[in-house]
Design a protein around this nucleic acid. Structure first.
Length: 354
DNA sequence: AAAGCGGGGCA
DNA sequence: TGCCCAGCTTT
């Protein structure tokens, strides 16, 4: 009965007071819903908004996406982060194009089988596009439910996931699963916010456990916390005439699939002296093929799990070298068309290099 | 079960 | 500075 109160109040709030608008709201095209959901994984709505627009404009349907070049798709993703989402999106588009004959799958299990689609995204697409009764469980849902029912089970534990998923499914309005899922996420984002929730105007306040026990700031609970490592990358931005040496990141590390200038990683940023004596480039410096043109100030990018300290050493080469440690020379216009990590793109832009 | 994976906003 | 964001995959 507390469940019924929750559902009814939430749906009433949605009809009367939910003013949240987004480009993909009331969308029923599964392809467009899929794109929006992938973009929004671990990403705030405002941050994903323009990416969604650009994506749909250039790739309006499965065929256009499935037949596009990986480089072009990754370019549209540049700056958005979590690039594995983009790689998986490409794989999934080909899955749909080939295995499902270009028609977006219409069952929960089939949708879940798509690369990069987990339980949340499958429930979202299933309910929004196909009116199937699957409850979404995202960060908003976990927060709203844990507070209202006063559940302190860590949301990232196996027990917690099962518990919250079952309760979420029980709460779902089976007659309007899409509207309900949209409502609970909007509610979490605008009323039951992570910090300073608007309990004073909350339609669920009268039966909210966390509110009555003064525990809204203690819920939901997580068990794990990430430890942050510091990394120091000294980039070698080598230029010969109008070409720059870059390479593609292929190792299992951050920014896989993106491009980069060469860099040397150590436990500190390299000094010029350390740089010119490094085995990789020392011969070029001693033969005066390379000369240092400029040294940037330190750049810092804070990621969820790493602090990236970077410095960019701009180097002129008076010889055209075919390849330096897998890096090859490309033109400015080619640089523009490629996807670089944010910290590198910032430097390139400031240097007017692409 | 735990770790890895971006970038940005907010208190 | 720490936490969170329409999470998923790999180990």
């Amino acid at each position: 009965m507390k469940e019924k109160f929750f559902r009814n109040r939430l749906m009433d709030w949605n009809r009367v007071s939910n003013k949240r608008e987004m480009p993909w709201k009331n969308e029923t095209n599964p392809y467009r819903i899929w794109i929006s959901e992938i973009i929004l994984q671990q990403t705030r709505v405002e941050q994903g908004w323009d990416y969604y627009r650009r994506f749909i404009h250039e790739f309006p349907d499965i065929q256009s996406l499935a037949t596009a070049s990986e480089e072009r798709i990754l370019k549209l993703w540049e700056g958005l982060g979590y690039y594995s989402r983009c790689r998986n999106l490409i794989i999934a588009s080909r899955q749909i194009f080939n295995e499902f004959n270009g028609k977006f799958p219409a069952s929960y299990e089939e949708i879940l089988s798509l690369k990069g689609v987990g339980e949340y995204t499958a429930a979202a697409i299933s309910s929004f596009a196909f009116r199937l009764p699957f409850a979404v469980v995202d960060g908003n849902v976990l927060r709203v439910i844990s507070r209202f029912f006063g559940i302190a089970t860590p949301t990232d534990s196996a027990r917690g996931k099962k518990q919250f998923k079952e309760l979420a499914q029980q709460l779902l309005d089976k007659k309007a699963p899409g509207a309900y899922n949209q409502a609970i996420m909007d509610f979490g984002a605008t009323i039951c916010k992570p910090v300073n929730p608007s309990c004073n105007i909350c339609p669920l306040q009268t039966k909210c456990t966390a509110y009555h026990e003064g525990k809204t700031d203690l819920l939901p609970q997580k068990s794990r916390k990430v430890k942050i490592t510091n990394r120091y990358l000294t980039y070698l931005v080598i230029q010969h005439k109008q070409k720059f040496y870059i390479r593609k990141r292929t190792q299992k590390d951050i920014w896989r699939g993106l491009y980069e200038p060469l860099f040397l990683e150590s436990d500190h940023l390299l000094t010029e002296k350390e740089l010119v004596s490094h085995p990789l480039v020392a011969p070029y410096f001693s033969k005066k093929v390379f000369t240092i043109h400029s040294v940037s100030g330190p750049y810092l990018q804070k990621l969820t799990h790493q602090n990236i300290h970077a410095q960019f050493i701009r180097i002129y080469s008076n010889e055209l070298i075919r390849e330096i440690a897998t890096a090859f020379p490309v033109s400015r216009s080619k640089m523009k068309s490629l996807s670089f990590p944010k910290i590198v793109r910032d430097y390139l832009n400031q240097q007017n290099m692409s």
